[in-house]
Amino acid sequence: MDRVRPLEGKTAIVTGASQGIGRGIALCLGRAGAQVVVNYLDDSAAASSVVEEIERAGGAAVAIQADVTKRADAERLVARTVDAFGTIDILVNNAGTGLSKPFAEFTEADWDLLIEVDLKSVFLCCQAAGAVMRRQGSGAIINIASVAAKLALPYRTVYSTIKAGVMMFTASLATEWAPHHIRVNCIAPGTILTPLVEKNFATGSLEPDKVLDRTPLRRFGEPEEIGQAVVFLASDAAAYITGQTLAVDGGWSIWGGWTPEQALREMP
């Protein structure tokens, strides 16, 4: 296997790839040799700039608009990918949204939005792309969950529940589609520096210092650090890995909450 371009000749769809983590994933996949479908909802200019950046680096990419919470759109996304590149080898379910607020104030519309964007889109895209992968007898699916899928945090009751759903969806589908040689894995990012997170810092709904206090590596992640993990899981290097949720979180999810100095100081 080529370690520099392990995905040469493969075709990948990344949902929600016009910005943030999705953009980082698309760039890494392009660099690894994959032909990349940059899916976006409404920002065609941002999606085009991701395509251009991949092409400038010598890769191949197209932008395809689709609202992946709609079955017809998900199916059109898959059909147009096959038209453009002839196959689908990799599906990255990245499109998603977050919402933090007191549970008592959560509306039914909030619930429906999160369920549709964070979970139903995964269901629809896996069925649509999975049909192609099952025919060809191979494929790799990577879902993006969150550190909140495994850790309980206040004001994220609904978000955490749904992301935990993505984790279990991953594991269950992995057992079901293993006989078709389709691997299904998940990544649980910690706090990654994206426009969304920077907005949350600005509005005060996320406090940078508090996050860093809980992160053993003491820094935020970069979108391309998620992209590199996606490349690994999508490649043949991970041919024996399926159903797993890989934490790419600087150690957040194993943290006891104390810095080593605090822990020493506060020892009985």
């Binding site: 590596l217 890989l246 934490a247 999810s253």
Partner: peptide
């Protein structure tokens, strides 16, 4: 490539 990954139990 795994620069933001630490403390995991990594099943293969």
């Amino acid at each position: 490539e795994s620069s933001y990954i630490t403390g995991t139990a990594f099943p293969v």
